[in-house]
């Protein structure tokens, strides 16, 4: 009796804690949606949601599996362009286009992942960078299908039965519901056997292999999963703005996603949320600096990395704990 009890407690105590977070999160989202009536703020929050899904998807790959990708915007773009092409050129319902977009992203990720994920460290980063650039050039040059550099106009807004997502509030709910779903999927995955295997790859791929983890398959699976989430974000972005152009999915966008993850904190799901919020809001605040904007942005980026290389979430917690220790001693 006695030895079982504590185990039960930890297992039982762990899941409800996550569940409490989720409930808290949902409540916060619902309340925000109810009380924020200005659709500008709702739009900013919606963009934060989309960016959070992106950051989260990359964090699975970078933070947990330790695989750097500098071409993540490609999957974001694939999601956006697939749904745009299917809904406009082929008159498909967006809700049917979504699985297609995700499927295509998964397919591409699978094809690219097999040779690319054999690489390590910088080489992997560079491989994904090259891939991202090529996808962007395809968006730009396949004019008949993608509208080329001028962009793709007239992507329909979303509707689900009587609910129209034309209204910003509904779209906000949709995006944040998608985000919550992504968080739950990622959290469950991280806390599962696969999650532990992933972290072992992060620490040492050789050691992971030695204990019988098929690192190659696992890496490809995470890569594919992260591509799927990025495509979801792309889908949400395309139907929100209703116009997409290659410039939104270029190398700088990939870098921005990486920055969100790193600043928020690698291997931290809530950190991705923080990083995405910060990087979405930062340019809005920096407008005040006008010509100095780039300088300030670059400086902030460098400073955070120099002072808090673990990202804001972990870095701040560390600082807090250190100060607490000092107080105690």
């Amino acid at each position: 009796m006695k030895p079982i009890k504590p185990i039960k407690k930890t297992v039982a105590g762990r899941f409800p804690r996550d569940k409490i977070y989720y409930i808290f999160f949902s409540l916060a989202v619902i309340l925000t949606g109810l009380f924020v009536s200005n659709s500008y703020y709702l739009q900013v929050l919606t963009f934060i949601g989309i960016n959070s899904i992106l950051a989260l998807s990359l964090n699975m790959l970078m933070g947990y599996a330790g695989q750097v990708s500098l071409g993540h915007a490609a999957f974001y773009g694939i999601g956006a362009y697939t749904t745009a092409i299917l809904t406009v050129h082929y008159n498909l319902s967006p809700w049917l286009a979504l699985p297609c977009a995700i499927f295509i992203a998964i397919f591409v990720a699978f094809l690219v992942g097999i040779p690319t994920l054999k690489l390590t460290g910088f080489y992997l980063g560079m491989g994904t960078l090259g891939f991202g650039m090529i996808v962007n050039i395809i968006f730009r040059e396949w004019t008949d299908l993608t509208g080329g550099a001028s962009g793709f106009v007239g992507i329909p807004s979303l509707e689900l039965g009587p609910v129209s997502f034309y209204s910003m509030r509904n779209y906000f709910y949709l995006v944040w519901a998608a985000l919550l779903l992504s968080i739950i999927v990622c959290k469950r995955l991280v806390n599962s056997r696969i999650g532990r295997a992933l972290r072992s790859i992060h620490d040492s791929a050789h050691a992971a292999e030695a204990v019988g983890i098929n690192t190659r398959n696992l890496k490809i699976q995470v890569f594919v999963l992260s591509a799927a989430f990025a495509a979801l974000a792309g889908f949400l972005y395309a139907h929100l703005v209703s116009f997409i152009s290659p410039g939104s999915f270029d190398f700088m966008m990939s870098v921005r996603i990486v920055t969100m993850v790193v600043i928020g904190g690698m291997a931290s799901i809530w950190g991705s949320l923080l990083g995405a919020s910060l990087l979405t809001l930062l340019p809005e605040w920096l407008h005040a600096f006008s010509d100095f904007e780039m300088v300030v942005y670059g400086l902030i980026l460098m400073l955070i990395m120099i002072v808090l290389p673990q990202g804001l979430t972990k870095g701040l917690i560390d600082i807090y704990e250190r100060s607490k220790k000092k107080d105690n001693s």
């Binding site: 200005n38 659709s39 500008y40 703020y41 739009q43 900013v44 963009f47 962009g151 972005y237 703005v241 116009f243 997409i244 152009s245 410039g247 939104s248 340019p283 809005e284």
Partner: peptide, 17 residues
Amino acid sequence: EGDPTKAAMAVSKLINK
């Protein structure tokens, strides 16, 4: 900054805020 996403944000700020 010539960025469509930022333009969409700015126009919404102008209209709603």
